[in-house]
Amino acid sequence: MRAVAPNAVTAMALCAGLTGIRFAIAQSWELAVAMVLLAAVLDGIDGRVARLVRGESRFGAELDSLSDAISFGVSPALILYLWSLQALPRLGWICALVFAVFCALRLARFNAAIDTTDQPHKSAGFLTGIPAPVAAGLAMLPMYLWFIDETPLLREPLVVAPWVALVAILMISSLATFSWGSLRLRQNIRFEALAGVVILVAAFASYPWQTLTALALAYLAMLPFSVRAYGRVKQQRAKLAEPSRPPAAPAP
């Protein structure tokens, strides 16, 4: 019974992602995007609920991956296709397919590496590629901008299609990205971090699309820093792995 609560949250995330497709069919674009964002919030909760009630299970892990594939792969792809990409029936559909399939490939790679002991990125506190929920949020960045200012260029499929393809490639890439679960706050800045969360929530309540745009751009700006940070960790590990050389014999 302890596994029911986290699995129920995962099922709610799946329902939210599918409901986003329903709103997209009705051309309620803001509600469609909101449902995908709600699915991302629920996806971030289910694992913590499972650890809180000690309800982790292999079934829950598989259900979570299937939910992510639909909520953050299929749903954003169809929403973006109905919103813009359908103006290019062939190229637009190819980009939508690539995004959905690459999301499934990323999740399959993650599941295949669960039992692998040698995971350099994970052991260093990094992720491999952009997580699926983050990729879904980044892929819908043109929609955030269009909600702020309905400029026709932002809905142009020749602009949206390359962006969706780029995010899909980043999702299955080998880039080292920061893992939020590995972040540790210092004791002396926790109050400042709490104040920042309050400001962020207030900004999101007042200006949701502007706040999401800023968060998406900030995440993209952090990618070079995450790659550089992992490079430093990799260099430190290489130095530690070098065998110690015996001292040179003194000259006669």
Score class of each variant (00 low, 15 high):
residue 139 A to Y: 03
residue 101 V to W: 09
residue 239 K to N: 10
residue 43 D to H: 04
residue 116 T to V: 15
residue 207 Y to C: 10
residue 133 P to K: 00
residue 239 K to R: 12
residue 155 R to V: 00
residue 134 V to Q: 11
residue 4 V to F: 14
residue 94 I to S: 09
residue 86 Q to M: 09
residue 62 E to L: 05
residue 151 T to V: 14
residue 12 M to R: 06
residue 193 A to G: 05
residue 50 A to F: 05
residue 24 A to E: 05
residue 64 D to R: 05
residue 28 S to Y: 09
residue 157 P to D: 00
residue 90 R to D: 15
residue 127 L to D: 10
residue 54 R to G: 14
residue 18 L to F: 12
residue 95 C to Q: 06
residue 102 F to K: 04
residue 135 A to P: 07
residue 57 S to Q: 05
residue 201 V to T: 15
residue 27 Q to M: 13
residue 92 G to H: 03
residue 77 A to S: 02
residue 229 A to C: 07
residue 68 D to Q: 03
residue 159 V to R: 09
residue 43 D to P: 01
residue 150 E to D: 12
residue 79 I to F: 01
residue 59 F to R: 05
residue 119 Q to Y: 09
residue 93 W to Y: 08
residue 113 A to Y: 05
residue 190 R to K: 12
residue 195 A to Y: 13
residue 21 I to H: 00
residue 202 A to T: 09
residue 182 S to Q: 12
residue 239 K to C: 11
residue 57 S to N: 07
residue 23 F to L: 01
residue 92 G to P: 02
residue 149 D to K: 09
residue 128 T to P: 00
residue 97 L to F: 14
residue 109 R to T: 10
residue 119 Q to D: 13
residue 215 L to A: 12
residue 226 S to T: 05
residue 56 E to C: 08
residue 77 A to F: 03
residue 106 R to S: 07
residue 207 Y to P: 07
residue 230 Y to G: 08
residue 74 V to W: 06
residue 13 A to G: 06
residue 174 S to V: 11
residue 10 T to A: 03
residue 37 L to M: 14
residue 190 R to S: 11
residue 231 G to L: 05
residue 153 L to P: 08
residue 84 S to G: 06
residue 62 E to F: 13
residue 114 I to V: 15
residue 111 N to P: 02
residue 47 G to W: 02
residue 20 G to L: 01
residue 183 L to P: 00
residue 158 L to N: 09
residue 59 F to T: 12
residue 206 S to W: 12
residue 237 R to E: 14
residue 120 P to Y: 13
residue 122 K to H: 12
residue 200 L to F: 14
residue 164 V to L: 05
residue 50 A to S: 04
residue 193 A to V: 08
residue 144 Y to V: 01
residue 75 S to Y: 02
residue 184 R to Y: 08
residue 2 R to Q: 15
residue 218 A to C: 07
residue 13 A to N: 01
residue 98 V to I: 13
residue 23 F to S: 04
residue 12 M to D: 03
residue 39 A to I: 02
